[in-house]
């Protein structure tokens, strides 16, 4: 009984994670400029990672793979924001204006080409 419940929960989590990955990918294409695209990337980087890894951890129960999955998830969640911050800060320092609002790719002129 409890196995079935855990199975269903993990499937739901995996499905939601897949949806998050897809939405983030679509957002990366649809959103108008660099600073807004970061938000789409952070959707796939955090929420999808959390959902998919939690789903897989529920599937494998209490075992060595679960420990490994948890370690990988923790590593991704700790380093992801640091990489994103380095990226955003580099863009800011290069003179790309973050307040270009909803205009399409006006910040492009400030980038390094």
């Amino acid at each position: 009984m409890i196995d079935v419940v855990l199975d269903v929960i993990s499937w739901v989590l995996l499905a939601l994670g897949g949806a998050c990955v897809l939405i983030g990918g679509i957002g990366g294409l649809r959103l108008p400029n660099f600073y807004t695209r970061i938000h789409a990337a952070s959707l796939t980087d955090t929420m999808a990672t959390l959902l998919i890894f939690t789903g897989m951890m529920l599937q494998s129960g209490f075992s060595l793979p679960t420990m490994k999955l948890f370690a990988i998830m923790l590593f991704l969640l700790l380093t992801g924001p640091t990489a994103t911050y380095a990226l955003a800060n580099a863009a800011l320092l290069s003179g790309m204006k973050p307040d270009s609002g909803v205009e399409r790719d006006r910040g492009a002129s400030g980038g390094v080409q």
């Binding site: 600073y35 938000h39 952070s42 924001p81 640091t82 994103t84 911050y85 955003a88 800011l92």
Partner: peptide
């Protein structure tokens, strides 16, 4: 604090300097 802000979708820390954070919100 900066990493937590970046971690949650919709907000990104752009700059952290002497206790002041510049945050971009969607």
């Amino acid at each position: 604090l900066g990493n937590s802000i970046t971690l949650s979708p919709g907000t990104v820390t752009l700059d952290l300097h002497e206790g002041k954070l510049l945050v971009h919100c969607l």
